[in-house]
Amino acid sequence: MRHSLLATLSIALIACSGNAPVEGQAGETPPSAKPFRETVVADFVSPWALAFLPDERIVVTEKAGQMILLSADGKRRQTIATITVDAAGQGALMDVVPAPDFASSKRLYFSYSTAGEGGKGVVLARGRLRSDGQGGDRLGEIEALFRARPFVEGNGHYSGRIAFSPDGQSLFFTNGERQKFTPAQDPQATLGKVLRLTLDGKPAPGNPLVAKGFAPEVWSYGHRNLLGIAFDGEGRLWEQEMGPKGGDELNLIMPGRNYGWPKASNGSNYDGSDIPDHAPGDGYEPPKVWWNPVISPGGLMIYSGSLFPAWKGDAFIGGLSSQSLVRVDLDGQNAKKADQWPMGARIRDVEQGPDGAIWVIEDGGKSQGRLIRLTPR
């Protein structure tokens, strides 16, 4: 990278949201014409995330713990791993992302919820994709790299999204506040935080809050349920999270900053009691964009392809209770709402395909759990 990582970044299943303490309550979403065609490629059982390998095959995680490898045309599939997860409530086999050096290492990084001492929590793990000797593949050498601290009771707000730094030398991992509120401001808890780790899951050197007594992994804090994280083309780190009753957010993540939860939010508590809105001078980093009525944001992708040239550099967010695909116009460090297309199902994740097509995956449950490819009309 041209600058130090700190400098660059400085410029740089079921989840709780909406108008009730469980997912599924949607605000009205104004329909707009869809400028894309939708092609259904495959169907899954409560899928959670998808990722593309260099050879254009697709890895999909399912809530109950199955990791599935899909051929590029969607016609062949194989279960490459079954992970033991605690899938109650919002628990799941969650994100999956190929390592920056996947072409040589064959490593996949993934996250999942599990039970342990003190309750439950989210785990970051990795494995190596190898031939199974029978014409297929299998994920082996699986190892847990990092466990959220502390484990607590409950089944919500695990988060568990993964993004690699542009230089491929570190990994950013989201830990939700587990619907416990105060851990987001607790310096020693990793809950309610964006974490920066080495590729082996250790605290990355140079994290910004160590001298202030924070856990050495912490990059930013004061977050709620962080279900999307991605870098833009200039090395800026963006994150989206579910607010309480209103107040879903898209944030530009700056090292060491406090994003306010639960002391500041543009939403309200579920019992109707007020939470102070973000305000100048309150000491909290405000969102770049926020939604009320909510969209219930799922996965986050920042588009860099050529099939939709007008959208290059923009953020795309899957909408769960809003059953939508949301586009946010990014302009440097600024952002503004653009489009919100009704999709007729809860959208859990959104990714860019190798040819620049946009891919979305439905949440399953009441929807089909379909994998859909979007191309220009």
Rank of each mutant, 00 (worst) to 15 (best):
A12I: 06
A26P: 09
G27V: 01
G27D: 08
P30V: 15
K34N: 14
F36L: 05
P47R: 08
L50D: 08
A51T: 12
L53D: 05
D55S: 03
D55L: 01
I58E: 06
T61R: 02
T61E: 03
G65V: 05
Q66A: 12
R76I: 06
I80P: 02
T82S: 13
V85M: 00
A87L: 01
A88M: 12
D101W: 08
F102T: 02
R107S: 13
Y112A: 01
G121T: 06
R138E: 14
L139H: 12
E141F: 14
E143Y: 10
R149A: 15
G154K: 02
Y158H: 00
R161Y: 02
I162Y: 02
A163W: 03
G168M: 05
G168N: 03
F172Y: 06
Q179I: 04
A184S: 14
L199I: 09
Y221S: 06
G235M: 11
L250S: 02
L252A: 07
P255V: 08
R257Q: 10
Y259E: 07
G272N: 06
D282E: 01
E285D: 09
P293K: 03
G298S: 07
M301C: 14
L307P: 05
F308S: 08
I317A: 04
V326P: 02
V326D: 10
A335N: 07
W341G: 09
R346S: 11
I347S: 12
D349T: 11
V350D: 04
E351I: 09
D355A: 13
I361H: 11
G364T: 07
G369F: 05
I372G: 01
